[in-house]
Write a protein that binds this DNA or RNA. Structure first.
Length: 269
DNA sequence: CCTAGACCCTGTACGC
DNA sequence: TGCGTACAGGGTCTAG
């Protein structure tokens, strides 16, 4: 569920609720995430939340003695609720952070997420990831220069390359469609003009999605909670066999890196 | 080095 | 109703 925009919304919600507060306790019910949660996590007890930032889809929570690093994987989710309210445990409620009079609860069915304490940000998770898409240094010129010798496809590059972090399958599809670039083009084949357009559309689409609001935290009042605010804005993702919004031709679907890629061979070149 | 593919895990949707 | 299969918003590791 959490795309970069939802992680951004989660960041804002956590900031509003917990900035400056002390983490009094943490309960780990299931430590088996992408990396097993180690005993080190208990170092966050009695620490104050000083700042919260995001890099790609990673959440970086600064506390007195280091950082808490959070990633939501495919299915991770945070809920915030008052300690006084009755909130029964659900399946896959792996972690509770008890902060002041509230509980921040981490739920993750597929357990591809991540939660760890780290002394500094010099670790294998953050060291090799690219610029955040909103970083000023992520511009058309940067993408053009950096992609000159890259033989993999442009979609693969923006999704998992080391150049830029946090662009998921949905937004990779959407940004390439908006830029009229075929996702299976070799990265090195992009012109400078196309690179500029692609970077513009990545930033633009992510920004729009953030404004629409992720639903991960806010939805905990609702019962369904599956519809993301941006779902209605999607132009090509999940539109297999449907007419292209620009030209009416049928959207095709291929597989790249085991992920679905949607394309309009008429609009995208 | 680079790239494609397998893999981690559970829930859901769909065909038979 | 029940069972088997494919697939899902991510990232990492490894084989070639």
């Amino acid at each position: 569920m959490p795309e970069l925009p939802e992680v951004e919304v989660i960041l804002q919600e956590i900031s509003n609720n917990f900035l400056g507060e002390t983490i009094s306790h943490i309960i780990v019910r299931c430590p088996k995430l992408r990396e097993p949660i180690s005993e080190e996590i208990y170092k966050i007890k009695n620490q104050i939340i000083l700042s919260i930032k995001r890099k790609g889809k990673y959440l970086i929570i600064k506390i007195n003695n280091g950082y808490i690093l959070i990633h939501f994987g495919m299915s991770g989710n945070f809920l915030i609720f008052s300690k006084k309210s009755f909130f029964p445990l659900k399946k896959h409620d792996h972690i509770d952070f008890i902060i002041n009079n509230k509980i921040l609860r981490y739920n993750d069915p597929r357990r591809f997420g991540l939660c760890l304490w780290t002394k500094n940000l010099n670790n294998k998770f953050l060291n090799n990831i690219g610029l955040d898409p909103f970083d000023k240094n992520f511009n058309g010129n940067y993408l053009f220069i950096k992609s000159r010798k890259i033989k993999k496809t442009i979609k693969t590059l923006i999704m998992q390359g080391r150049l830029v972090s946090g662009i998921g399958n949905i937004y990779a599809n959407e940004a390439l469609f908006a830029s009229r670039i075929l996702p299976n083009r070799k990265a090195m084949s992009l012109t400078k003009k196309e690179s500029i357009a692609l970077v513009f559309n990545i930033k633009n689409i992510l920004l729009k999605a953030i404004k629409k609001g992720g639903t991960t935290i806010r939805d905990f009042h609702k019962t369904d909670g599956t519809q993301g605010g941006f779902n209605n804005e999607l132009k090509i993702y999940n539109k297999f066999k449907k007419p292209c919004v620009n030209c009416g031709n049928i959207i095709q679907c291929i597989k790249q890196e085991n992920r679905k890629t949607y394309l309009c061979i008429h609009c995208q070149k």
